[in-house]
Nucleic acid binder design. Structure first.
Lengths: 142, 142
DNA sequence: ATTTAATTGATATTAAATCTCAATTTCAAT
DNA sequence: ATTGAAATTGAGATTTAATATCAATTAAAT
């Protein structure tokens, strides 16, 4: 099923379904665990298929683009920091169009998160919530 | 005020308050914008103070440890992926003690996030919520 | 089967972050 | 204020993830 989706994604973009891309896709969907590119590369090797590191990285980007795979941790080119002392906690909305960052805070949201943690026997210390989408300006611009 | 806190943090660890660390701290708290290490390094240079890249990186780690600064994007050593097709959306709790990852989903939470987005004229497409803290086992182990 | 454009892989490159270590600086104890 | 031990600094080397290069190969439409 996911291979059908990937195939039509590639088709629409004029890209080809190669042995290597199939090998990556297969290995990615062989388990539901989180994984890192290097680890995936080794697993593919062990499984008897083959795809170079370069192809693994390239295919992962395609899989994310197709929506079949997501990055669990959204990394930018480098780490991003902010000073927090003297400022209350807040979360972020980031516009995919223009990069605008909206900071927001919701008492209700914090309370709900704590409640969910409690339900899992978990004590939350910190959290980051990042919502990606489109801001008002960019919505209108379309 | 933040310098007092940093000073006592350093004191407790037997570390010293140096010109370079002061310069980094000052620049970090000179604005409320998000920043990257390289950018901070250049700003310090421009401001007439001086601290090497190495010191900027080292001091940032100390500031995070002290709680005065936070990473906006939590990066691991490398990107972490998961396949999502065939699995409903979920968020993550990550235990600081043992690294255990708990996946959870809450209809209520999703609804509340959408409501908050609407209130900001924002249309959320995707989001990542990562709660860091301690799992049941690690709490008991203490 | 042929052709054309995409793909591959080995290697080079880039870039963020950390490490090394001799020279310097901090700061507590005099 | 001086001293001395331990921490810190900076320049450059190193590490590591990820991307770029490019000749050889391969997919797939005709």
């Amino acid at each position: 099923m996911e291979s059908k989706i990937f195939q039509s994604f590639l088709g629409e973009k004029g890209l080809k379904l190669t042995k290597e891309r199939i090998a990556v896709l297969k290995e990615v969907f062989s388990s539901h665990e989180h994984f890192e590119p290097e680890e995936l590369y080794l697993r593919i090797k062990d499984s008897g298929s083959k795809a170079s590191r370069a192809s693994v990285y390239r295919t992962l980007n395609l899989l994310v683009e197709s929506g079949l795979v997501e990055k669990v941790t959204r990394t930018e080119k480098s780490n991003v920091y902010e000073h927090t002392f003297g400022h209350s906690h807040h979360d972020h909305m980031i516009c995919n169009g223009c990069g605008k960052i909206i900071e927001f805070y919701s008492e209700k949201l914090e309370a709900l998160q704590n409640e969910i943690c409690r339900g899992n026997g978990f004590i939350g210390k910190t959290h980051t919530l990042e919502i990606r989408g489109n801001c008002e300006k960019c919505i209108k611009a379309k």
